Structures are given as C-alpha cells and as structure tokens.
Lab assay of single mutants.
Amino acid sequence: RRRVRAILPYTKVPDTDEISFLKGDMFIVHNELEDGWMWVTNLRTDEQGLIVEDLVEEVG
C-alpha cells in the first residue's frame, strides 16, 4: 500500500470528512480521488478521512 508523510500540519474544516494532522504524521492511502484529495488512515491517530495531496510527500 502507498504511504505518504505530512510535510505541513493541517486543521480540518468543521463538518467535513477531512482529518486534522501534524507535520510528520504517516498515512496509508486507500483511495485517490479527484482534485488531489486522498482517503487515508492516519497511522498515529488511527483516524480515517480526507487529506489533500499537496500537504504530503511520498515515502520510499
């Protein structure tokens, strides 16, 4: 499975499927959606939700 790491922190918009995260958080990518969004699991918090790919980098 594809893994990505947050390069910046992010605070979710209330009442959306987004998740908040810290710089350095690792995610497993489940689905890549339109307009650069990804459905992921945050490995630190075990939370699932949407993040935008501009805020993460690939992990080898």
Rank of each mutant, 00 (worst) to 15 (best):
E18D: 03
L43R: 04
V29I: 09
V56Y: 03
K12L: 03
R2I: 06
L50H: 05
D17Q: 15
L50Y: 09
G49R: 00
F27K: 00
T41P: 00
V13H: 13
D25T: 02
L50D: 02
E32F: 07
D17Y: 12
N31S: 15
D17F: 13
I19E: 00
V52T: 14
L55Q: 10
E32V: 12
E53K: 15
V52W: 15
I28M: 11
D25L: 03
N31I: 14
V29N: 00
V56C: 08
E47V: 06
P9R: 08
M26H: 11
H30N: 07
Q48M: 13
T16E: 02
L8N: 10
T11M: 11
W39Q: 05
D46V: 10
L22E: 14
I51D: 00
F21P: 00
V4P: 02
A6L: 01
H30L: 15
D54Y: 12
T41R: 08
N42V: 02
V29Y: 02
E53A: 14
M38I: 11
E53N: 13
G24L: 04
G24Q: 04
F21R: 00
I51K: 00
I7T: 09
V59G: 06
K12S: 09
K23Q: 12
E32S: 10
L33R: 13
L55V: 07
Q48G: 05
G60V: 14
I51Q: 01
V52Y: 15
T16C: 04
E58I: 09
D46C: 12
W39F: 11
V40D: 00
F21K: 01
G60S: 15
E57M: 09
L43A: 05
W37T: 09
K23G: 07
L8C: 11
A6T: 02
I7H: 06
T11W: 08
L50K: 14
E18C: 05
I19M: 06
W37H: 09
E47H: 07
W39G: 01
R1S: 15
N31E: 14
T16W: 03
E57W: 05
S20L: 01
V13S: 14
Q48K: 12
H30I: 14
G60L: 13
A6Y: 02
R5N: 04
G36P: 05
F21S: 01
V4E: 00
E57S: 07
G24D: 10
Q48E: 13
F27E: 00
E57I: 10
V29G: 00
P14R: 08
R3N: 08
W37I: 07
D25V: 02
I51M: 04
N42W: 02
G60A: 14
M26K: 06
I51E: 00
E57R: 08
R2L: 07
D25Q: 01
H30T: 06
K12Q: 07
T41H: 11
T11N: 12
G36W: 03
E47M: 08
D17K: 13
T41E: 08
W37A: 07
L33V: 10
P14H: 09
M38W: 05
V52M: 14
L33A: 09
L55W: 12
G36K: 08
R1F: 13
P14V: 09
P14N: 10
R5A: 06
N42G: 02
E32H: 08
D46L: 14
V59W: 12
Q48P: 05
R2N: 06
V59K: 04
G24A: 05
L22K: 11
V29A: 02
N31G: 12
T16D: 02
D17W: 11
V40Q: 00
L50E: 05
G60H: 13
G24N: 08
G36Q: 05
E32T: 13
T45A: 03
D25R: 00
V4R: 05
D54M: 11
L8V: 15
K23D: 06
S20C: 04
E32D: 12
K23C: 08
D35N: 15
M38C: 04
D17S: 13
I51Y: 01
L43W: 04
T41F: 06
V4M: 08
L8Q: 15
V52N: 15
D54E: 12
F27T: 00
V29F: 03
I7W: 06
L50W: 11
R5H: 06
T11A: 09
L43S: 06
E32R: 11
E53H: 13
R3A: 07
N31R: 10
I28P: 00
F27Y: 00
H30D: 07
K23R: 13
L8K: 14
D46K: 14
N42K: 07
I51A: 05
T45V: 03
W39S: 04
E53T: 14
P14W: 07
T11S: 11
G49H: 01
W39I: 06
P9G: 14
I51H: 01
E47L: 07
G60C: 13
W37D: 03
L55K: 11
E58G: 08
W37N: 06
G60F: 14
M26D: 07
R2W: 06
G36N: 08
L33P: 10
V13I: 14
G49N: 01
S20F: 02
D54A: 14
E34I: 10
L33I: 10
K12D: 02
M38N: 03
M38K: 04
R3F: 14
E34P: 13
I7F: 07
T16N: 04
E53P: 10
E34C: 09
Y10T: 02
R44K: 05
R1D: 12
E34K: 13
R3Q: 12
T41Q: 09
P9L: 05
R44D: 05
G36F: 04
D15Q: 11
E18P: 02
N31M: 14
D17L: 15
W39E: 05
G60K: 13
T45H: 01
R2K: 12
E57N: 06
D35G: 14
D25H: 01
V59E: 08
R2G: 06
L33Q: 10
T41N: 04
V52R: 15
E32M: 13
E34Q: 13
I51V: 13
Q48D: 11
W37Y: 13
L8W: 12
L55I: 07
T16K: 04
I7A: 05
E34S: 13
E34N: 14
D35P: 07
R1C: 10
V40C: 06
V59N: 06
H30Y: 09
L33S: 09
K12I: 03
V56N: 01
Y10Q: 03
I51T: 03
K23S: 10
L55H: 15
R1Y: 15
R3P: 06
N31Y: 15
